[in-house]
């Protein structure tokens, strides 16, 4: 199985983002997704920065995929989309059907926000140029395994294996709302939350994470304990979603596991929501049924 690094879903400082990508050059990952998925206003990295990052990663032997916005409303966002697709030297990740429409025969990755739930949609996208499919986060592994059997020839399957789950998009910026700021004068307050802003229930249960117009899970989905099942189901690529700390430890733990090598394993998550993996078995995503059962199983 290959390891991919998903796009940075948060607004990181330019230096932090550049350091992060530099560190990936020597990390045991195969694919790196670069670019912005969440908010068109975020421009911490310039177009030249992104080009340099992509060249550096490619020179280090990584497959570089340019990702694109999930919510496209304004004409300017469509124009940027077209420019990004044209400028990408390799494949791009489509997260809206506007991007699929703009492919024009180019190869692309069908991103997690395209809502692919069946073989007919998968076949359609493959005919239009998709060569990899990132499954929707809520898709159970059993469904994915069924689709893997009849998948179009050559199509790779990628799953969101580690990170706070991207659950929803809105036109409204919830981080700005929490800071009592209008969206047009947001002051880029999301930059203060490099792993999202945790939302708790009134019983202090970490529940969701606000990330601009995106809502995530507070818990980190962690599929590391399930790698053998993922492999059997036909998964080709494991996506690790960037977080501000310990990311290379996460990469190493997954790399050890995919090579059946002993290692220190995964560090405890520094995020307050703990781990979850309920979606894997078609349960509530926030549940931790599978890994909890594994952890408490008699020796």
């Amino acid at each position: 199985m290959k390891l991919s690094v998903g796009p940075i879903l948060y607004l990181w400082e330019r230096a932090a983002a550049l350091d992060f990508y530099a560190s990936l050059c020597t990390a045991p990952v195969d694919i790196v997704y670069v670019g912005e998925v969440v908010c068109s206003k975020r421009r911490m990295l310039t177009r030249e920065d992104w080009t340099a990052v992509a060249q550096r990663l490619a020179a280090a032997g990584k497959e570089v995929v340019t990702t694109t916005l999930a919510l496209l409303e304004a004409e300017s966002e469509l124009a940027t989309l077209g420019r990004q697709i044209n400028a990408a030297s390799g494949p791009f990740e489509a997260n809206d059907y506007a991007a699929v429409e703009s492919a024009n025969g180019r190869e692309f990755v069908a991103g997690p926000h395209l809502n692919v739930y069946n073989a007919a949609t998968l076949a359609l996208l493959a005919r239009l140029g998709a060569r990899r499919w990132v499954a929707p986060v809520e898709l159970p592994l059993a469904t994915l395994a069924t689709l893997a059997v009849t998948r179009p020839a050559g199509l790779e399957i990628e799953v969101f294996a580690y990170g706070r789950l991207p659950l929803a998009f809105s036109a409204r910026c919830f981080t700005a709302r929490a800071a009592n700021r209008p969206k047009d004068d947001c002051g880029f307050v999301c930059g203060a939350h490099p792993d999202g802003l945790t939302l708790h229930s009134r019983e202090r249960q970490p529940f969701l994470a606000l990330n601009g117009i995106q809502t995530q899970s507070a818990a980190v989905q962690n599929l590391l304990p399930h790698l053998p099942r993922l492999r059997t189901a036909g998964v080709d690529v494991l996506r690790l979603s960037p977080q501000s700390r310990d990311f290379l430890d996460v990469v190493r733990a997954f790399d050890d596991a995919r090579q059946a090598r002993n290692g220190p394993g995964l560090p405890d998550t520094f995020l307050s929501g703990g781990y979850c993996d309920g979606y894997l078995d078609g349960r509530a995503g926030m549940e931790r049924a599978a890994s909890a059962a594994a952890a408490t199983a008699p020796p």
Partner: peptide, 21 residues
């Protein structure tokens, strides 16, 4: 709906049941 319809998995995250599925 405050979220983009078809792009919201909040319900399945909490209950296992979603608008999409």
């Amino acid at each position: 709906c405050v979220m983009v319809e078809g792009r919201c998995a909040l319900s399945s995250h909490v209950t296992g049941h979603s608008p999409n599925v």
